[in-house]
Amino acid sequence: MSVATQDTAISTGKITRALIYLVLLLFALFYLLPLFVMVANSLKPLDEITGGNMLALPQTWTIEPWLAAWSTAQIGVEPTGLRPYFINSILMVVPAVAISTILGAINGYILTKWRFKGDNILFGLMLFSCFIPFQIVLIPMATVLGKIGLAGSIPGLILVHVVYGVGFTTLYYRNYYAAVPSELVRAAMIDGAGFFRIFWRILLPLSGPITVVSVIWQFTNVWNDFLFGASFGGTSQPMTVALNNLVQSSTGVKEYNVHFAGAILAALPTLIVYIVAGRYFVRGLMAGSVKG
């Protein structure tokens, strides 16, 4: 799908245009409100939330809740803050994204430039695997991770995310490489380059844009995952699970401000990616509806 070349704009009167702007701004407010609530209340002392107005700016500004969420808040039974879980998430995300992206690139290359009988069926099987409800694999996955000694470990989570991410990365690269003329590969073959050299010297140098898309997509997905983290995280739980434990904990006073600070901490990496590379993020989302 192409972006921003033409408008289907209609000619409208002044009042209609004012109304259009009004509606658009109201929606902007709707989308921004929760973010505002999170940020504003994460900078308030707790009594300002319990005794005050959630939509108001802080009267006393404090970063205490942030520090607490990061290093001292009670997560489950340990007062560790979210920091160790944040580190878990990083340790899990980086290899998972790297491996699944590399596999996706090479798969996409094969599925477009070295086609063979039945390749479309294989791709179809990979593609469908992106959309399965993961509940269908939870039980055997738990069993298998236990058997191979990866249960409750970061390598286990990496494996899970690679397995269920490779379909998407393959889809991205396949659609991207499909647009690269096959004559390029033929020319390189005649020039004497083999399978790996063609990939390394011809295709890969062209893959910058799609690699950004694939990395962002995988990063966002793996970072935001909760189901696998909760099911197989064990002692190596990722950030999302820790945040949920922090918020749902039933002991003691509910420290809303700390919860909000924690939520922002959990959202920060993906939000930064979105702000820095929003264009590619959207392209990744779009490719999720299969069309390249």
């Binding site: 929606f27 902007a28 989308y31 921004l32 929760p34 973010l35 609530v37 999170m38 966002t220 970072w223 935001n224 995952d225 909760f226 999302t240 945040l243 949920n244 918020v247 919860h259 909000f260 924690g262 939520a263 922002i264 959990a266 959202a267 993906t270 939000l271 990616v273 979105y274 929003g278 993020f281 959207v282 989302l285």
Partner: peptide
């Protein structure tokens, strides 16, 4: 502004 919620985890959205 309309799109950024998509970048968030459902857990963050749920908490908010």
């Amino acid at each position: 502004i309309y799109l950024y919620p998509m970048a968030l985890s459902f857990i963050v959205t749920g908490t908010a």
